Structure formats: structure tokens, C-alpha cells
Simulated assay, not measured.
Amino acid sequence: MIDQLLKMADGPLQDLLSQSGMNSTPGASRAIEDTLGSLLKNKTQSGDVSAIKEMFSGNDTDPQSPVIQNLAGDLSSGLMDKLGISSDQAINLAKTALPMLMNFFNQRVNDAPQANEDIMNSVVKALQGGPGTGGADILGSLLGGGKDRGMDLGGLMNMGKGLFK
């Protein structure tokens, strides 16, 4: 589910990378999205939900925030592996992309029909993958999709579209 949400930020992320001169590495935006998605899943499953809470808080994320600093190191390691770039290039790429992505979602979550906390908690539960916590089911129950069973993938995508009007 987080992968689908991150893909919705692809256009703005590519624009940011292009404007900053960092888009010279082929596949950079996809590598950022894939690596960050895996990173957020792993952190959430291990109980660290600070990044997800920040991402869906509705408040601006400062580039110097502890969440950005915490994610930047792990993201840059993944980018070095995926893109074959130097440590300096990877950390610059991570520190450029992370605040933009966090704020991309923070700006849009405020316009969603659900409370920010409901969206944030749904994403956390879906990423933690506990029994009966399918991402579509959780989001569906909070967003009114389906009867008692949540929503299908189409409903999940419609929810995503609602975040990005």
C-alpha cells in the first residue's frame, strides 16, 4: 500500500530531482520510492512508526527534523546499492527527496475527507501487517468502502486519488 502511495508522488519527485540537477542517475525516482517504501515497511513492522506519523501528520516537515535525519542514512545506503552512486551523492539525494516526499503527503492529507490521524493509523496498521489488517480492509472501514470487509483495490486507488486532488 505505501508503494502505491509513493508512486503517486512520482511526477513531483522527478521534477524536484530534475530541478536540483540530481536526475542524471537513471531510475533515481523509482529507486527512491522503492527503497523508501521498503524502509518504511521495515521500520513500522519493528515498531518505529515515527516516519509514518510524520508523513501523514498534516504538518510541514523540516529538512533538519530528526525523522528526516534518521531516514536519510538508511535511504542513502539503499540508493548506493540500487543506483551505484557514491555515499555523498546518495546522502544528497536522500536529503533532497525526503522532505519533499514528507511534505507532499502532509499537504494532501489535510484535504482528505478523513481525519489525518485515521489515515495515519490505517497506514501504520497496514504496514505492521497484523492478523486481519489488510491495507484495503483497514482503509475501507475508515473510508466507508464496502460492507464490513473494506474495499477492493479500485476503492483503495480512489482513496489515493482523493488525497491528491
Results as ranks from 00 to 15, higher is better:
residue 30 R to F: 15
residue 57 S to D: 11
residue 139 L to N: 02
residue 118 D to N: 14
residue 5 L to R: 00
residue 20 S to E: 15
residue 69 Q to M: 12
residue 145 G to M: 15
residue 139 L to F: 15
residue 51 A to M: 07
residue 54 E to R: 04
residue 98 L to V: 09
residue 50 S to M: 11
residue 130 G to S: 05
residue 65 S to D: 15
residue 140 G to Q: 01
residue 18 S to G: 07
residue 129 G to V: 03
residue 3 D to Y: 10
residue 113 P to K: 15
residue 74 D to K: 13
residue 51 A to C: 11
residue 38 S to Y: 05
residue 52 I to D: 01
residue 44 T to F: 04
residue 8 M to H: 12
residue 71 L to F: 15
residue 57 S to Q: 11
residue 4 Q to E: 14
residue 34 D to C: 00
residue 90 A to Y: 11
residue 18 S to N: 13
residue 19 Q to T: 10
residue 119 I to R: 04
residue 138 I to E: 10
residue 119 I to Y: 13
residue 158 N to S: 13
residue 147 K to M: 06
residue 37 G to E: 04
residue 49 V to F: 11
residue 28 A to F: 00
residue 98 L to D: 07
residue 4 Q to W: 06
residue 33 E to N: 09
residue 81 D to C: 04
residue 7 K to A: 15
residue 101 L to A: 07
residue 37 G to M: 07
residue 99 P to L: 01
residue 117 E to G: 11
residue 16 L to S: 02
residue 103 N to M: 06
residue 58 G to D: 10
residue 3 D to G: 11
residue 86 S to Q: 06
residue 112 A to H: 14
residue 12 P to L: 13
residue 143 L to M: 07
residue 39 L to S: 09
residue 15 D to V: 10
residue 112 A to N: 06
residue 109 V to A: 08
residue 33 E to K: 04
residue 35 T to M: 04
